[in-house]
Design a protein around this nucleic acid. Structure first.
Lengths: 227, 227, 227, 227
DNA sequence: AATGAATGAGCTTTCATTCAT
DNA sequence: TATGAATGAAAGCTCATTCAT
């Protein structure tokens, strides 16, 4: 009986899964650990100045670990972006599902999500901007971002179309409003990144609400929204 | 009598000034040439992957030239960003001055400027995003960007306040509207960068106009704006 | 039962220590190897013309190795000087200890050490002069050399004082004689460096002995010293 | 009448010499100016860290000037060393000639010269050591230094032989004493360079005098030498 | 699976030298 | 003669990647 069998013996859940499954699990955990470390480093030092050594050190592991699990630095960053996008999408879906199934509520929920402290956090925004900064020269980065944006636009446009139909609003289009809404959050994040001192979550949310109230007065009556 | 003798004749002090001005001009011209080359390289390869050799080659000059004129790569990029900011600001002021001196016209002019082909150009946007991507880890980059944004916000807010006062609009604030406007252009640029195929200048402008018409109906009557 | 099992058996803590000791040893060995290579290169090419690449090549290793183990070229040279000083001091102490515990014998032993082939070797002298040549512009080099000289002077002066007291010599001081003695070896080394063909170890030793005999006749009677 | 003729007109000394002679004079003056600047730089920064730019700046002239007058950096340094050696030799001869024509006086004069503030100056010593530090790897440097040393030794040995013959001193040789004397000054200079705080000109001179008094008591009676 | 020493390509920077003015 | 912008080779240093353990 060796060290290995000892572990397998005591952990019945492990025992039921195959040995390779356990390895895979461990492997996935390490990858996740390294991606998390990469995010922290990118937030602190930027994409261009983050070295594989930084990431390994942040994870408390050794030099060679990144190449062992990701084959290359490029790949690590690629997977990191994918992870960020997946995470964002999950939270997006979750916000939709948790809200009341009304277009106005959902739109409101999505806007609030984008300004929520865990997403509209300067460190995380810095990471997004770090990747966006390389989008032009890295087609693969662009594709991941584009796909996420497309989904965001599609959903928002759908909700706006619904509201416009419901409210019989004139002079506006779902496409136009969703374009504005999508743009606003990006613009607010930029302010949070560049002028953190003048950025104020409340004011930002107020600006969005003012907009929604002006444009969809029937769905977002004044004072209907409270914090 | 040529240009030279004219200078010598009319102002002997000018002769010295002219000489040093010429030296300075030459020096300034090289710096500008290198900054232009840097912009091209950053657009093509990103900040992190642009080498001093790339910039020199793009300018058709030798390796050592960048350090000769900028002392370091960091400094070159710093000056490049400053140049971009200066240029943007000049075009901003120019757009204001060329427009009719009415708040609505000026706001319209500024929005059009941000979407004009020479500013809302994917290559140029890529360069801005490249710098924004390093803002978190480079305080000096941040400061340059912040100062520019502050100026933009200030002017836009002033114009919005004027319009609100003139039109006696209710339920909106100059701060809120200008926040939305500022954000929109940034958001549109992001779309241009990330989803160039789905980005359409006309649609983008329409979205902005829809917004202005909804929010300032007295100043931006429907169909008042045509391309 | 092999060495390994012995360690594990007798002291499990030792197992860790042994491991890290081995790591350290290896690391220390590499550093030493590089310092030795540096000494050779400096002897051959001088401080200013020795490149990191030269040192690595001399050690039969790769370019990056010096920065890996010493962080910078400066540091390598600094450590090299320190190593030279340490080595010299060790040999100095050793010569003192091996000699009979009489002041005269010790003084004689020290002089012989300084002219011994392994110390008064043109290559090694060249290295010392290489460092001395930078002493003025490198305070850290100066400090290392100064400390060594201070020790040398202190010991020599002590021995001279003893001899003067013992022999009741008049007209001389321990400080004066030790100054002369210290100076002589440096001067002889310089001759060895600059005029190697006219430098003769025997003659040099004779000159020193003549001096000692003249100044301390009771301790160094004529013909008492033979080679 | 041009600028040139103006100068020739007013400076009759110049007028008598040919134009080319003036050029040569100017040329020699520039070379000397650059050598002086080189000495200052070497004293401050060492041989290895002195750049051609440093020298030109120190001389208040432009980048290209050194190559214009010396063809290469190597040549400048070579000429600088030669200049130093020539200067030293001139002062050496001058000290001999100014002294009373007695061997004892001349020896005394030479020792005093080597410790005089203008020669035993830390900056100048630093320059000598800078060159000595490269002697091993630069045969031409070595030759210049060797020639100077040979002359020094030859003269000193002659004086010592004279004294020994005159005083009928036993147990010492001219070669031995001159070796010691030559060595002493080099050794004292080294102390001045490395331990400037503990170096004291008076003590140094006393040590030499003690030595001369011990070894040549008839020529250097105690208290015969006063400061 | 993990380590970390070693590699070596690639980068920034320095600087002797050249050359048009 | 003198300048100083420009060159480009050479150097130090960084770091992704490899590999023996």
């Amino acid at each position: 009986m060796n060290e290995y069998s000892f572990i397998l013996w005591h952990d019945s859940e492990m025992a039921t899964t195959a040995k390779s499954a356990k390895r895979t699990a461990t492997r996935e955990k390490r990858r996740r650990q390294l991606i998390d470390a990469a995010v922290k480093c990118i937030a602190r030092k930027g994409l261009g100045n983050t070295t594989i050594g930084d990431v390994a050190a942040e994870a408390g592991l050794s030099q060679g670990i990144v190449n062992l699990h990701f084959e290359s630095k490029d790949n690590l960053f690629h997977e990191t972006l994918r992870q960020l996008a997946d995470e964002y999408k999950m939270r997006f879906e979750s916000a939709m599902n948790k809200s009341r199934p009304l277009a106005a509520d959902r739109l409101q929920a999505l806007m609030e999500l984008d300004l929520s402290p865990s997403i509209c956090d300067r460190k995380k925004i810095a990471v997004w901007f770090a990747f966006w900064g390389e989008v032009k020269s890295r087609p693969t980065y662009r594709k991941i971002c584009e796909k996420l944006d497309e989904h965001y636009d599609e959903v928002t446009k759908g909700l706006c179309d619904e509201l416009i139909a419901e409210g019989n609003y004139k002079g506006i289009s779902g496409a136009g409003v969703s374009t504005v809404l999508t743009s606003i959050t990006n613009g607010l994040w930029q302010t949070c990144l560049i002028s953190p001192k003048s950025f104020d979550r409340q004011q930002a949310m107020s600006a969005i609400n003012e907009y929604l109230q002006s444009i969809f007065p029937k769905h977002f009556p004044v004072n209907s929204i409270e914090d």
